[in-house]
Design a protein around this nucleic acid. Structure first.
Lengths: 362, 362
DNA sequence: GCGGTAACTGGTAGCGTTTTCAAAAATGTT
DNA sequence: AACATTTTTGAAAACGCTACCAGTTACCGC
């Protein structure tokens, strides 16, 4: 007697479909995988039989039999931030079109040996892996590579150029934002870095420096504060910058979330945005448009990045010969209301002094 | 000749482990599933053989053979908001302990017939389903129920009391928050609702009304503005409330995100929080603590809710007899800096008038 | 020591697919 | 009409594991 999974009634299998349609299981399988070499009339018979019986393919069996599992894995550090959400949206869009499912792996929870970890991911469960902004991917990247397991990095500047990856033009975006502030007339521009272990954070700092240099403005290390892409970092950083003897007239935060922290700090000092201090961010997460004043920021095409990465991964899965390359998507300066030219030197200082005093006394 | 999956070398299976350890495949399987009835020495031999060979279990085969798939599905409306993120964190914690994996399904992307959809979910891929704040779950809830497929609702007030679900004491939390404001001395309290198709939003409005009634304050429909849990809703709602001839002295937003919108609007009116207007939220997402002033809010134990739901689901999977019940976790008022007593009537109005004028003129 | 029970162990038949491989049918060619 | 191709088809063997069924061994009380 065949063991039943549960007490549940017998699942309909391709055998049932085959019987119903009067063909062999092989033919049903061929129809399922939309292969050629099936006569149109039989294909139609199979299709109707499938709908009549309410057949649903069993992925487990399919993948065990040597097919693909039709699942890809997403390795992500933190879910629940807009940045991740936007990218996942892009991934899902592409996946649903390709009839693939998404397996979520969060890195912070893992304590097992990396090697085993990758093996687990690799073995059967998924056909490929998307690595979203990994902090230290060297460990598994190597195993992945030598196992020739399909993967794509998202938003990571690998040391290895050969890695299939998609990212945004971080350096360029940062350069543009800084130039924009300079062209508005700002000369002292504060900068709050991101998590400097991440290549994108380094690139953004470099873009800032390059823009300064190209416009003949000396780089002042006092204007750079280290952060980690978090709101409190922006808050603390801005506080430090505003306490400077000669504070900046604009602050560039390495991502929108920390820019929100900056905005809070600026307001806590009794200063107004953009009248007293201009603030600019990076990412263009949805909140940037919802905040008041609207945050001027550098748009990363997050959703598009997710889509592209997924397409690259799926292509790798289909065609083992294809090894994706590194792609950079263009950033774009999104101008909202959080920046304006600084006040003329004299008027500026007096007005700010007055306002600072007011702010502190309240 | 056995067909090879790829050109990859032969995967190590339990047969290899069995040979290496000098036992039968059955014994290896028993060790894998940590069943009893295996002598310690053999178990040890198997374990060492497994590590020596670098064995990794093949989940597909395992589940196909009638075991569990060791995967649960999470049906979620929107990923990338803190609310979801916190809950997922809780889910993951529980899952990693139980050696389960997480499959992510986002609802918005689906256009297929519900019935097929559930069947797909049900068939093989996952052992159970977590439904996070589903908008209209009736469709699949029914099929799920009659298929006796394990599932747990998170943060949803089903019409059916029998549904296994975990939620927070929304009504009570809202009652507490409103009472707190009343006890501070507020009499006119604005309320911004959440998405009213969701039970939790309805409950929160009810809690607000109940607190008002219990304190002998007449309910004024003019003070209630409908929102959908989004930041712009809070902004627009607060603007509407502040434009009232007799504006509220405090605003209660149905979730933190819309409370942030309220804070923006209040500031745009040149008013200060909490001196001129008190603001209170609901959820206690991480940002609530990072914003300035810190947002007083009603804490939902989101992470804990995720954990509990997962535990309930896993228990259902293990024990088909067990049908989870509805559980409500207690909310807690988290007092930060965004509320204070309203100014005494006279001083209050003059001060606000002055400030309003200032705000508008700038 | 002996039957009886309980703890172990191995053999093997599936689970539902895909994938050869070869046979059968259809098509084209002279 | 006979032959050479090319499409279509079906049978059957995996894929790696679990679950059932016997068969072994170990333990216990007499």
């Amino acid at each position: 007697m065949p063991p039943r999974k549960n007490s549940r009634s017998h699942n309909v299998t391709i055998l049932d479909v085959a019987r119903e349609a009067g063909v062999s299981p092989s033919t049903v399988s061929r129809v399922l995988n939309s292969q050629d070499h099936v006569r149109p009339d039989k294909r139609a018979r199979v299709l109707t039989a499938m709908t009549r019986l309410g057949y649903v393919v069993n992925q487990q069996a399919r993948s065990l039999a040597g097919g693909r599992s039709h699942v890809i894995g997403l390795l992500v550090h933190e879910v629940g931030v807009s940045y991740t959400g936007e990218i996942i949206r892009g991934i899902e869009e592409e996946l649903v079109a390709a009839q693939y499912e998404l397996m979520l792996y969060t890195t912070h929870r893992r304590k097992t040996k990396e090697s085993t970890y990758v093996a687990t991911l690799t073995r059967g469960m998924t056909d490929g892996l998307l690595l979203l902004l990994p902090l230290n991917p060297q460990a598994y990247l190597e195993s992945l590579h030598q196992e020739r397991f399909p993967y794509v990095l998202i938003d990571h500047q690998g040391t290895n150029e050969a890695c299939p990856a998609v990212a945004a033009t971080n350096r360029r975006g940062s350069y543009d934002a800084t130039s924009y502030l300079i062209e508005l007339g700002h000369r002292r521009i504060g900068f709050i870095t991101g998590e400097m272990r991440l290549g994108c954070a380094v690139d953004r700092l470099e873009g800032y420096k390059a823009a300064l240099a190209d416009h003949g403005i000396a780089f002042d290390p006092a204007l750079v504060v280290e952060g980690h892409f978090l709101q409190p970092d922006g808050y603390a950083g801005a506080n430090a910058l505003l306490a400077l003897p000669d504070p900046p007239t604009a602050i560039f935060a390495s991502n929108d979330v920390s820019a929100f922290g900056v905005m809070d700090a600026v307001r806590d000092h009794g200063l107004r945005i953009p009248e007293d201090i201009s603030v600019i961010g990076f990412d263009d997460i949805p909140e940037a448009a919802h905040v008041h004043p609207g945050l001027t920021t550098v748009r990363q095409p997050l959703e598009q990045m997710g889509q592209l990465a997924t397409r690259m991964l799926l292509r790798q899965i289909k065609d083992p010969e294809y090894t994706g390359e590194r792609v950079e998507l263009p950033t774009e300066l999104v101008i909202r209301q959080s920046c304006q030219p600084p006040r003329a030197a004299r008027e500026h200082t007096t007005a700010r002094r007055r306002r600072l005093k007011e702010g502190y006394s309240s």
